[in-house]
Nucleic acid binder design. Structure first.
Length: 284
DNA sequence: AGTTCGATCTCCT
DNA sequence: GGAGATCGAACTA
């Protein structure tokens, strides 16, 4: 697909300077970042695939922040890379709140949306609107949209025009109590009952609530932002098996609804929806 | 200008 | 397993 090359080119060069809403929140204060002490798994990725070499961002961003090269791969590959499929090192999403609190969660479930040909994607048929513009921006750009009038979903643009990856579930690793609080206060019922750990990030909109991610994050760059970024996770306890299953909540999209474009770590209790049938086909 | 419809979550049965 | 919440966007005219 030649669109790839064109997209990549336009990412590098013809980047329109679209102002990111009015919410500039965290950035303005030029606080000298004290890069947090390196995570254990920070070591240079020795087991990496051939093509990817420069993973980390320049000095300007957080030291452990994954750089833009990581995101520059096709949607399916990126969806699997988030789970650590090629690297044996699932990725951790980090959210730094205004007060400095860092919330962390290991990515355990994703969905790939392939672009114009994908009938389930917002970019189907090449539709490009103010809302979904992030899908067409350079790999690593966030696409955050409102769903059902009250929830948010977080996507990361990948290589390929109009292609992206939806983040569906996280294993919470740090800042659990803050997450619980964010989830409780944002919940509609507000029954007051304490949420279990598994209820914090087991769904695309739940994780947005838990990490305080809203529309103001739309079109931000995950490789450069100071308030949200990606890091390598500590090595998992066991080697992870990735399950490929049908995507969730897109019953209308005909044959595209059945394609195995959702990926999750088999056996993880943090996944939003398990698909037993699909797990039979997973490679050990 | 009016209508329709969600890449969801929660609570209830 | 199912209904209701709730509103911004996309779509129709």
């Amino acid at each position: 697909m030649t669109a790839r090359g064109a997209a990549q080119l336009s990412c590098r060069t013809g980047q329109k300077r679209q102002r990111v809403l009015e919410a500039d929140r965290e950035s303005p204060q030029g606080r000298a970042q004290t890069p947090s002490p390196g995570e254990p798994c920070l070591g240079p990725p020795a087991t990496l695939g051939p093509r990817r070499s420069i993973y980390f961002s320049g000095p300007k961003s957080h030291s452990a922040q994954l750089g833009s090269d990581f995101f520059d791969q096709p949607a399916v590959a990126l969806a699997r890379a988030f789970l650590g499929q090629q690297t044996d090192c699932p990725q951790v999403l980090v959210r730094r709140l205004d007060d400095g609190t860092e919330l962390r969660g290991r990515i355990v479930e994703t969905e790939a949306y392939l672009g114009p040909e994908d009938e389930a994607a917002h970019s189907r048929g090449g539709r490009q609107t103010p809302r979904n513009r992030g899908m067409f921006m350079k790999p690593g750009t966030l696409y955050v949209y409102i769903i059902y009038g009250m929830y948010f979903c977080l996507n990361v643009s990948s290589q390929g025009d109009g292609a992206c990856v939806l983040l569906r579930a996280l294993e919470p690793l740090g800042g659990l109590e803050t997450m619980r609080q964010l989830r409780s206060t944002l919940r509609k019922g507000a029954t007051g009952r304490a949420l279990k750990d598994r209820e914090l990030c087991s769904g695309p909109s739940k994780l947005c609530q838990a990490l305080a991610i809203d529309k103001s994050f739309d079109q931000r760059d995950l490789a450069e932002d100071r308030a949200v970024w990606l890091e390598r996770s500590p090595p998992g306890p066991s080697e992870s098996v990735v399950v490929a299953a049908a995507r969730v909540g897109i019953g209308h999209a005909g044959e595209w609804a059945r394609k195995p474009l959702r990926f999750y770590l088999r056996g993880s209790p943090w996944v939003s929806v398990v698909d037993r049938a699909a797990e039979q086909n997973a490679q050990a």
